[in-house]
């Protein structure tokens, strides 16, 4: 079984290679589809999205993990244990660790990044 670091790299590679999303819901769906595909292919760990304890598998952000982004009607934030996943209304994706380091960045279908929306 590939290591988590290797699987995460593969997730990023496939996510960036996929067509840009055009909406927040499309961006979220894309993250989920790509990550679940990678985990299904590269691990033997059964998919259990209700798993609360670490089972060795990576899971995409859950819809109910959303937090409001202050003074922004464009951005949505989804919290997981060690990361925040931001998506924009136009499909941009940004994943940051809790220290604020960007680990994934993808523009939306309109070419704009999460950061460009944040700067408005």
């Amino acid at each position: 079984m590939a290591s988590k670091a290797e699987r995460f790299e593969e997730f990023l590679r496939r996510l960036l290679a996929a067509p840009a999303a055009a909406s927040a819901s499309e961006a979220l769906s894309q993250i989920g589809a790509v990550l679940n595909q990678v985990e299904d292919e590269l691990t033997d760990i059964p998919f259990d999205p209700d798993s609360w304890q670490d089972d060795g598998r990576m899971y995409p952000p859950r819809p109910d993990a959303e937090r409001l982004v202050p003074s922004s009607e464009v951005l949505r934030r989804f919290r997981s244990r060690g990361h925040n996943t931001f998506v924009s209304r136009s499909g941009a994706i940004e994943i940051r660790d809790l220290a604020g380091n960007i680990v994934a960045l993808k523009a939306g279908a309109d070419g704009r990044t999460v950061e460009s929306w944040r700067a408005e």
Partner: peptide, 14 residues
């Protein structure tokens, strides 16, 4: 769920 240390993306509690 309590976890200390590096957290991989989308990981559950330890």
């Amino acid at each position: 769920g309590v976890s200390a240390g590096r957290a991989e993306f989308g990981a559950g509690a330890h």
